[in-house]
C-alpha cells in the first residue's frame, strides 16, 4: 500500500473530542454531517480546507480519549487519506484500522503544513517529497495490515467470517 498526500499539521495529544465533539456524534449516523465538524475545535476551517487524500500529521498520542469510532469515520468522510503521528492511543489505532483509515506511526517532527508526503506501508518508509527526506515507519502487525488491506474489519469478517489471524 502506497499513499500520497499533503500535510495538515496538528500538535500532540489530539483527543477524540477534538476530532469530533460529543455534542454532534450522539445524534446522527450521517458521517458526512459529522465530517463537516471534524477537528473544528482545533482548526475551524479544516473541514473546508482538506482535499481528498490529504494527510493529518500530528505529534504523540493521537486519538486519545473516548472509544468513538465516529473519530476515524469523520476523518475518512472528510477525505483524509491517512493519519501520521509520532504515536497513537490504542483504541483509536484499532478503530482506524477497523474502518479502513490508514495510520502511520513515524517521527513527524520534520514535517510542515503543505509538505507532499509518500507513505510506503509495506516498504516501511515515509518520503517527504517537498524536503527530499526519508523517515522509517513503525511496521503494522501483519494481521492489522491484512484487515486494512481488506478495507476494514467488516469487510474482513465478510471475507473470512471470523478473525483470520494466521
Amino acid at each position: 500500500m502506497k499513499l500520497k498526500g499533503r500535510a495538515h499539521c496538528f500538535g500532540g495529544d489530539v483527543n477524540t473530542d477534538y476530532i469530533i465533539s460529543g455534542k454532534y456524534k450522539f445524534k446522527t449516523l450521517d458521517m458526512k454531517e459529522l465530517a463537516s465538524h471534524v477537528m473544528e475545535d482545533l482548526d475551524p476551517d479544516f473541514a473546508k480546507k482538506v482535499q481528498p487524500g490529504d494527510f493529518v500529521v500530528a505529534g504523540r498520542n493521537f486519538g486519545c480519549g473516548s472509544s468513538r469510532e465516529q473519530a476515524p469515520l469523520a476523518l475518512l468522510n472528510a477525505g483524509v487519506g491517512a493519519v501520521l503521528a509520532a504515536s497513537f492511543a490504542r483504541i483509536f489505532y484499532r478503530n482506524a484500522i477497523n474502518t479502513g483509515l490508514p495510520v502511520v506511526e513515524c517521527d513527524t517532527a520534520g514535517i510542515s503544513a503543505g509538505d507532499e508526503l509518500l507513505a510506503d506501508m509495506e516498504g516501511g518508509v515515509l518520503r517527504n517529497l517537498t524536503r527530499g527526506t526519508e523517515t522509517p515507519i513503525k511496521p503494522l502487525p501483519p494481521f492489522m495490515l491484512k484487515v486494512l488491506g481488506d478495507g476494514g474489519l467488516a469487510a474482513h469478517f465478510r471475507k473470512y467470517g471470523t478473525f483470520n489471524i494466521d
Binding site: 472509544s67 483504541i91 478503530n95 474489519l153 471470523t162 478473525f163
Partner: peptide, 20 residues
C-alpha cells in the same frame, strides 16, 4: 478494555476478540 463499534460488532457475532 474499551473498543470501538466495529470491534463490538465482531465480538457480538463471534463471542471473541483479538488482543495484543
Amino acid at each position: 478494555t474499551g473498543v470501538g463499534s466495529t470491534d463490538l460488532a465482531a465480538a457480538l457475532i463471534s463471542g471473541k476478540m483479538w488482543f495484543k
